[in-house]
Amino acid sequence: MAMAGGESEVYGLIKVWASVFSALTYCCALGKLTRPGAGRLVFVLPIVGLFLLLPLHLSSVHLCGSTAFFIAWLANFKLLMFALGKGPLASSNPPLSLPNFIAVASLPIKIQPNPPQDGGQKAGATKDPQKGHKSVFNYGIKLLLLGIMLRVYDYSDHLPQVVLWFIYGFHIYFCLEIILAGAAVLARAALGMELEPQFNEPYLSTSLQDFWGRRWNIMVTSILRPTVYEPVLSFSTRLISRRYAPLPAVFSTFVVSAIMHELIFYYLGRIRPTWEITGFFLFHGMCLMGEIAIKKQLRLSRGLPRPLAAFLTFSFVMVTAFWLFLPPLLRCRADIRAFEEYSAIGEFAKDVLSHMSVSKAFNTSR
Rank of each mutant, 00 (worst) to 15 (best):
M286L: 11
M289V: 09
T126D: 04
L208M: 01
R337T: 11
L13G: 12
Y139S: 01
L143Q: 12
G12T: 05
N138D: 13
F174L: 07
M149R: 07
G49A: 14
P55I: 01
G12A: 12
D128V: 05
F362V: 14
G85H: 07
C64D: 01
L63V: 04
Y266D: 03
F211V: 03
A310D: 00
T126P: 00
R214H: 06
V10N: 07
F166P: 00
A349E: 15
T237Y: 07
A334N: 07
H62G: 15
N138F: 15
Y153N: 11
S354G: 10
V250M: 10
E340N: 11
V16Q: 01
V10E: 04
K295T: 02
W275P: 06
F311Y: 05
R366T: 06
T126F: 06
F280L: 08
F101H: 00
A105K: 08
D118W: 04
S19V: 02
E291P: 08
P94W: 00
E196C: 03
S19T: 00
Q117R: 06
P88W: 06
A105P: 11
Y26C: 09
P248Q: 14
A105S: 02
R272P: 07
N138P: 05
H158S: 11
V163C: 08
G169C: 07
P231A: 09
L308C: 07
A29M: 12
